[in-house]
Design a protein around this nucleic acid. Sequence first.
DNA 1: AATTAAATTTAGATGAGTCTAAACATTGTT
DNA 2: AACAATGTTTAGACTCATCTAAATTTAATT
Lengths: 222, 222
Amino acid sequence: MTRAEENYLKTIFHLGKGHNANISTNAIAQQVETKPSSVTDMAKKLADKGLLHYTKYQGVSLTDTGSRTALSIIRKHRLWELFLVKKLDFSWDEVHEVAEQLEHIKSEKLIDRIDALLGFPRFDPHGDPIPTKDGQFLERDKELLSELPPGTQGICVGVKDSSAPFLRFLDRNRIALGHTIEILEKEDFDKSLLIYREGEPLRISHQIASNLYIKKNDPWNK
Amino acid sequence: MTRAEENYLKTIFHLGKGHNANISTNAIAQQVETKPSSVTDMAKKLADKGLLHYTKYQGVSLTDTGSRTALSIIRKHRLWELFLVKKLDFSWDEVHEVAEQLEHIKSEKLIDRIDALLGFPRFDPHGDPIPTKDGQFLERDKELLSELPPGTQGICVGVKDSSAPFLRFLDRNRIALGHTIEILEKEDFDKSLLIYREGEPLRISHQIASNLYIKKNDPWNK
DNA sequence: AATTAAATTTAGATGAGTCTAAACATTGTT
DNA sequence: AACAATGTTTAGACTCATCTAAATTTAATT
C-alpha cells in the first residue's frame, strides 16, 4: 500500500461521510489536489486491488477492505494529532500537516503504543472521534451552534472546519473544546449570535457558529 | 529532498565514517540495496544539486551541504530511536526499522520538540552520539572490549554491530549499556574472554567482544 | 607492457504517479 | 428529441527511481 493509495482511500472515506456513497472523480481530484484523469487511473488500480468498487462514469465507493484500510489511516492521523498536542505542545492549528506525514508510518506496534501512551483516547484535538483498532467509532451526540435557539447552554465539543485560520480565530477569541457556551441572543437579520463564554459575552457571525459543535447540557445526566 | 536522496546521503556519510573519503559506487549500492548503475544515476543527480562531489570512476564524497543534510537525518534517526525506547518501551533491537521511516518526516518543530521531551540527549540506545541541531557531535572516548587486556574494568557504552540478532544475544546474556564489565581472563587460543558482569562471570567469543565498546573506569575522574 | 579481472558507466526499459489534450458519456435545458 | 455544458475517460508523455545487459575504464597480475 503506497502513500498515494492511502491518501485516496482516506479522502474517499471522508467524502462519503461514513455512508459510503458513490463519489465522483471530480470531487476526489479536488480533494487530493490532482487532475480527474489521474483519479481515473488510481480508481482502476484500487479496484483491481479490491479496495474500491468502480464503474466507469459512475464514480467509486469503498469495499469492506477499503473501508477498513481508510479507517486505520484515519485512526493513525487522529492519534498522531492528539500526541502532538498532548505530548509535544503543538497547538491545534499546527498538527494537521505533520499528521499527514506521520499517518503513513508502517508499524502497528508504534501506533498501538502511542494509543496507550495517550490513554486510549476517543477524540482528537478537533473533537473528531478516533476509530478503535477494529474500526469502530462513536460519533458524539452534538449539534451545530448555529442550529440552536437562544437560551441554550452546552459544551463546545468539536469544530466542523478545522483549517488553521479558523482555529486561530477561535484561539484569539477564547473559544476552545471543553468550554461552556451559552447563547444569549440571536440576531434575525444576519443570524449572528451573542454568546457567553469564559465569563464574557462575545458576538460571532453565523459562519463561525455554523462551524462549532455543541453538546447540550443535560441536567438529568450530568 | 526525496526519501531516496536522503537515504543515499546518510549512507555515504556512514561509509565515510565522518572522514568523508571517496566512496565507491559498489559500496553504496550494497548498503542501499540497489545496483551500482542506479547509484551512478543518483550520484549525478546529487552532484547537480550540490550535495556530492562526483568524478566518473572515482566515487563520491559529500559537500559541506551534503554533510550537513546527512547529519540532520542521522540526528532525526537517533532521536526517534531513543524516543521509541524511552517513551514507548521499544527494545533496542526493534527501533531501527521504525526510525528508518520516522527520520524522513519533515518538520523541524517536531524533531526539536522530541529532542526537548527527551532532555536533549547526547547518545542513542546503541551508544551512538546524537548530532546537535547545528551538526556537532562528540564521539565518546571508548574502546573495543576485544582490544583491552585482562584486568580492565569499565562501563559498556556502545555496540559496533547493532543488528537485532546481536542485540538480542546481549539481552539474553544480561549485557546492556551502562553495565560494568571486567575482563577476568583472555584465552590465547581463540581470543575468547571470561568477563564479569552483573555479579556473574560469562564467557564470550572474540566476535562478541569485538562489537562491544567499553569506557575504561578512570579512578581520578569518577 | 599486455592481458585479465573487477568496478563503473551508458543505453534502453519498467512501474508508479502524474500531466495535457483530445475523445467520449451523462446530464440538463430548451 | 436535439444540443450544450459538464463530467469522465483514453492516449500519449513526463519524472523519479529503479533494473538488465552491454560497453568502458581502472586496477591487478602475469
